[in-house]
Design a protein around this nucleic acid. Structure first.
Lengths: 233, 233
DNA sequence: AACGGTATGATTTTCGAAAATATGGTCCAG
DNA sequence: CTGGACCATATTTTCGAAAATCATACCGTT
């Protein structure tokens, strides 16, 4: 289900609707389309060069992912943000991610270990390039996502992985929301390193604790530095 | 997000696409459209009296819910079933439902207690009518769903409730799959009664244990009596 | 007979026009 | 001035035809 986002230039593989869905998702997560923004067909039609129907299909898919809000007979808009929603997403992520980490540590084989180590390695290399503003680097985004994805990939449940991916996207949107206001990033590199070590050494309890802290502190950061954006309805 | 399925006669509220989505979902869950069945537009067009585009939108929504399988450029089909998928759905349900029951018991107020008691009452009345084949009674289906929904409704997280609803639907499809082969229903009435009592008396640990047993034994039943349907790819 | 390539038919996917519905403003009655 | 009904416009939603893509059968070559 996740996308392994290799340069999604033009229509990479298949249907236009799937491509539009992908591009719209990226823009919403990156807050290029801000929360609450009405999504009018005329505008989208021009921006994405697709017809009503195709756009509608994409918007329907994103509605199911919780990134778009459908108001029957009154069109679509980017899903609004709120403190309540941030809390719900955070709690749900903790619940699921903790379970998946446990399972992955229990079941992960050599390939899993390699994936975890190598994705972290790439992430650290990218961070060295611009330690101040990692979130602005699209490559960092991809690498960060892939590291966390690798960590749980061995859990054995495609169903839970799909749910996790959805929640990850929704959380990432909140991260972008606060990116412009956050003074300096905290020591994420160190946290990722510690999580990797706990996972590889099969210390489940420690890994779980680190992951929960990681998720919650990110969420707290958003609430602190983007709180003023979370109050409008 | 859940539907409170009151007689969805004709186009009840709003858009045709939403209506078709609802009807298609019901038919898939009830296995009127069997797992793996190709969903060709000509056929659907005749069956539901809607156009390509509208149907496509409905199928896209159901794909996101895990009830339909989209194969790019090669159309849609009813999501296939498998032992692996049944296991995943069951485990995910236990994980989430257990958490939600805990939260609901902690946060539920008078309205919650009333909802739990009254939905169980209705369920029992319906069961008295035809104790042998409850699953064949569409009213039982609705009442059963509403009881379980009421149990967790006070959890405080719309996000987790939406995920739960999706998993419930997917599990219900498996139940229908085995309904024709199951010799006699086990004592569900007693189980529901016990769950209700544990919840109302705020005995979280007991309620959690009962719910987990309830979910897993249902799943085991399916594996036992519909196992021969779960092996074809 | 086996293989590869191509033409034909079936099916999905996309499009823009047309129908349905909401929005906003104006006018009139109270 | 206020409130409500009505009309005009903006926007969404739906449709069936047209384009794109896939599946299959056919044919010629080895």
């Amino acid at each position: 289900m996740p996308d392994s986002a290799i340069r999604p230039r033009k229509e990479f593989g298949k249907t236009i609707a799937a491509d539009i869905t992908h591009r719209l998702r990226e823009e919403i997560i990156a807050c290029a389309l801000p929360p609450g923004e009405p999504l009018r067909f005329d505008v989208l039609r021009e921006r994405f060069g697709a017809s009503f129907t195709t756009l509608r299909e994409a918007l329907t898919a994103l509605t199911a992912e919780g990134l778009v809000d459908a108001q029957e007979q009154r069109g679509f808009r980017v899903a609004p943000v709120s403190r309540q929603d941030l809390t719900e997403v955070t709690d749900a992520r903790v619940l699921i991610e903790v379970e998946l980490i446990r399972r992955a540590i229990e079941r992960g084989n050599d390939d899993w270990e390699i994936a975890v180590i190598s994705t972290l390695h790439r992430l650290k290399r990218i961070e060295q390039r611009d330690p101040e503003h990692p979130l602005r680097d699209p490559e960092w985004k991809v690498a960060h996502r892939q590291f966390h994805q690798a960590l749980v990939s061995a859990c054995g449940s495609a169903t839970l992985l799909a749910i996790r991916a959805e929640l990850f996207d929704r959380a990432e949107r909140y991260r972008h929301l606060s990116a412009n206001f956050r003074p300096r990033p905290r020591d994420k590199a160190g946290e990722h390193q510690a999580i990797m070590q706990a996972a590889i050494s099969r210390n489940a309890d420690l890994a779980v604790q680190l992951i929960e802290t990681h998720i919650r502190s990110t969420s707290d950061n958003v609430a602190t530095y983007a709180g003023h954006l979370l109050d409008t309805e």
